[in-house]
Amino acid sequence: MSLAKPQLGKEIRVEEYIIEDEPFYLPQGDEVTLFETAYREKIPVLLKGPTGCGKTRFVEYMAHRLSKPLTVAKPKGKSAADAGNDHHRVPLVTVACHEDLTANDLVGRYLIEEDGTRWIDGPLTRAVRFGGICYLDEVVEARKDTTVLIHPLTDHRRILPMEKRGVILEAAEGFLLVISYNPGYQTALKDLKQSTRQRFISLEFNYPAKELEATIVEHEAGVAPEVAWQLAKLGEKVRNLKEHGLQEGVSTRLLIYTGKLIARGIAPRRACQVAVIWGLSDDPQVQRSISEIVSSIFE
């Protein structure tokens, strides 16, 4: 008799997190080319766009894509296998910023050990050291002192000053800082400073067009094409309400969640209720309005 071993989550070191399987991503425009170029030219990238429109997915996709050996870039005379090994694989370090995130959290800190202290690299330091993409999600949420780190990393210097340790870390080849922010719900207090903004090229993201979104939902949620189409339609309609009662339109992510619930047999209207309506607003009037849209679209 042996008990089945419970499947434990795999532990991966931050700097070794390489996206192996290609994430599903449908380009909305030329953002892939732009990003690739920026990466090669070491220009930091700022991703703007509402929540759940695919910013993170895009970064993951790019990290994967950049890790892949490009056939055109294959050096002459070497075999494909060699090229694969030789090619620099791009780890992706994602940090979700929150209002308590300080510079130390990014750079690293001393921990107490047996006989003293030990330095632990923060996620940013690791990305700099190993030449990965460091993605700071919702960067304006972080404390102001993080900008001190961002600035020297994002101009020609490409260095990370590690004050505590008294060293300066030069960024490895392949390092790129990518930050994202959602212009929708920024108050005047939490806006990105011009001196920070102007260190990045900005890629604007928005929710995909209905047809594209339907394809995405269909793929991600595994629902029938009609359902995906209906969900995309719901997304389009609800987004029309932005600024007229809704702070933010429904995200593609939420539509995918809804799709997943439907694919698993939850009644569509109920799935929309829990995933879309209740998630979007607490105002009963607004909830009722969205629910009427839902009941028009879904049987």
Binding site: K237, N240, L241, H244, G245, Q285, S289, I290, I293, S296
Partner: peptide
């Protein structure tokens, strides 16, 4: 009225 207004705005995408 308010409900229908939001509903119409959502469907039509106009004000």
């Amino acid at each position: 009225k308010e409900l229908m207004r939001m509903y119409s705005r959502a469907l039509s995408g106009t004000q």
